[in-house]
Design a binder for these strands. Sequence first.
RNA 1: GCCUCGGUAACUCAACCUGGUAGAGUGCGGCUCUCAUAAGGCCGUGGUUGUGGGUUCAAAUCCCAUCCGAGGCACCA
Length: 488
Amino acid sequence: MPKNTFFISTAIDYVSGPPHLGHLYEKILADVIARWKRLGGYKVHFSTGTDEHGLKIQRAAEKQGKTPKEFVDYISRFFLNLCKVYNISYDDFIRTTEKRHEDVVKKIINKINENGFIYKGSYEGLYCVECENFYTEKDLIKGKCPVHKKELEIKKEDGYFFKMSEFQSKLIKHIEKHPEFILIQKKRNEIYNRLKIPLRDLSITRKDVWGLEFPLDKNFSQFVWVEALINYLTTIDYPNKKFKEFWPGAHLIGPDILWQHTVIWGSIIMSINLKLPKVLNHGFINLKGEKMSKSVGNVIDPFELAKKYHVDAIRYFLIREIPFGEDGNFSEEALKDRLNNELANDLGNLLSRVLTIAEKNFSGKIKKNKIDEKLISKLDVKKIENFMNDFKLTEVLNEIWTFVKSCNKHINDEKLWAMNPTDQEKHLYSLFESIRIIALLLSPFIPETSGKIYMQLGTSCSSLKEAKFGLIEHYMVKKGPILFNKIK
RNA sequence: GCCUCGGUAACUCAACCUGGUAGAGUGCGGCUCUCAUAAGGCCGUGGUUGUGGGUUCAAAUCCCAUCCGAGGCACCA
């Protein structure tokens, strides 16, 4: 990726059902990173979207008496809406049923073929006649079809294959040379070890399944995985200007699809001679230690959540509570704790107490003054930038909060409310500068709140370069509504 | 079965790579300022670091074993 551009994608969500908290978590992570990069002056392309082909969707559509296209149009809207409700600043929302995607897929498949990595063969596997689908041994329940509980037969089907096996040693070498290819080490180890087992070629076509037509043979549709991954090239307009500007990027994904993004996607990328992207793999969200699942009925609906809690509180909570790459726990109790203690008391009250003094004693007008070195020594912007570069988002918030608390302590230690006017104005200036920079650093995480803080401070920032003390000549502040209402 | 990761205060985690008798936040108890969203600040409470061995002057940290837990093991996505 050229120096001053940054391409980040979420996985495109499979639209067999509406979004849950896990989908939201990934979008928030990507959004925070994208917003941070923009603050840093990068030209950012942030893509998200929906994956709309495949057998499961075909089935789900049939069940509802809809055509697959009608069905995906309906579900995809929920994901788009999710982005809007949660302030996800995507640059492109891509759907795999779009024409532009079909065009790029065609180009890629042709290119892989020209390079000699596609051949016709036959796939043999365990097949359930009723499902019209192949299963692997792992899928089976007591050796039988997981859906119909029936014996499976061995079936052979013609199809096209991608010579994935040819890329095995190259993938191993790539991981050894570029460990950052897979961000989280424990998952990197898993992939690395699995690559010691011979890699099989990948069957890339299906018969009679809802999907894009296979460019080399009209009798087949494409296996969803290969086609869906190509969205990362579609979104930056492969092979044109934007592609040259932004490739390779960083793919943010969940642990369930790591193999596909490293081994399958990695091989495909190598087969068309492109540089490999980075894979930023995050963890799962559990509920009270249990996996979210529809059958257990403990799925959190992000739309319902947003009705109950401030969107920024939810964004803040998910990032603050769950270290990148780790599985995390969601509970409303923990969310309330963070919201009440950290957002409302520490941050919201800090703004409120300082504004009151400024309005009461100076009618909101605060002139530039010498900065209090002791106060600002508590903030290490460089450290925060480093954490951010390593995607240690939780640490970033931790560091910012240390400073928020320092501001509160400073007010107490100095008895700000009881000072003579000259000193008071001096300290107020330092505090407003501190709060301005806090709002700036927090803006990727809680954008709406940062906006509210800027408004009350009567200023605004849009670049990390403004994270310097003493930039503002005059403050004209005006107290507004409180930032966060506490929830019992 | 094979592979990976984890087991540290009531809870969530840090310190482990680069050994030197464990830190933070939350919770709980107390004190305190009064500008503020009854907010803020301070002090305290609290752990024989899963278990058993080994190496070492010294082990949460390195090695071995063992128990417990989580995850992965490709064409459903």
